[in-house]
Design a protein around this nucleic acid. Structure first.
Lengths: 109, 109
DNA sequence: AATTAATACCTAAAATCCTTAGGTATAGTA
DNA sequence: TACTATACCTAAGGATTTTAGGTATTAATT
């Protein structure tokens, strides 16, 4: 009934993919976007998201811009050049994994 | 160029799926079968496999039969009734996840 | 003959990534 | 006034995997 759990290791790729399509996004926006795109199937928890964003920033894949909107802070993240490169790698890796798993699991007995 | 890492949470489902197709298998055989089926894309490490098998057994999803072949031990695992039920659930869960991820990641920007 | 690779099992420490469960603060709605 | 939504955050714990060993037998290679 609830939403499927994240298979560990996929969150980073999801974040990078979204930012490759949208130029800049803030954390809360990412959680909502994923919920929307997956029709509630996948819920990114903030406890996973924020540390992940911080790590991507620390590794130089994302850069931050803090903006005040309606007296509330928003931290917009966008891909750096390295981030864009890594996105390609991570996407290929995950694609290949999904394909492999489909061929392993997908065909019915 | 090596093999893609396991996304955490998928190993159990892989084991159950293989055993739903093959009646009984032993650990080493599972690692070889996965390597073969995925053309080397996915390598199950023994450090992950054996603890996982033991846990599935402890949880009553698998049962063991020890056989001596060529003076070497083999521990054959097969699904219990509960194991068969769980296999269905796990497969549905993973299928749904793969589908969701495909729709998130799969479509090109 | 001796070493290496393959078969077959195992475990423990460390790393990784996520969930759970909090906390702060503002703004809008019941 | 209380709850919901927006928006950020962290820390403890759990689950799962990687890494790096270990034992033992048999087959292949040097």
């Amino acid at each position: 009934m609830p939403n499927s759990k994240l298979y560990k290791g996929s969150l980073t790729t999801i974040i990078l993919k979204l930012l490759s399509e949208q130029e800049k996004m803030y954390g809360y926006e990412i959680t909502q976007k994923v919920k929307e795109l997956t029709k509630g199937e996948l819920n990114i928890t903030e406890g996973a998201l924020y540390p992940s964003l911080h790590k991507l920033e620390a590794n130089g894949l994302l850069e931050v811009e803090v903006v005040k909107v309606d007296n509330r802070l928003r931290k917009y993240y966008k891909l750096t050049n390295n981030g864009t490169k890594e996105t390609v790698n991570k996407l290929e890796e995950l694609q290949s994994y999904l394909k492999t798993m489909q061929s392993l699991i997908g065909k019915l007995a």
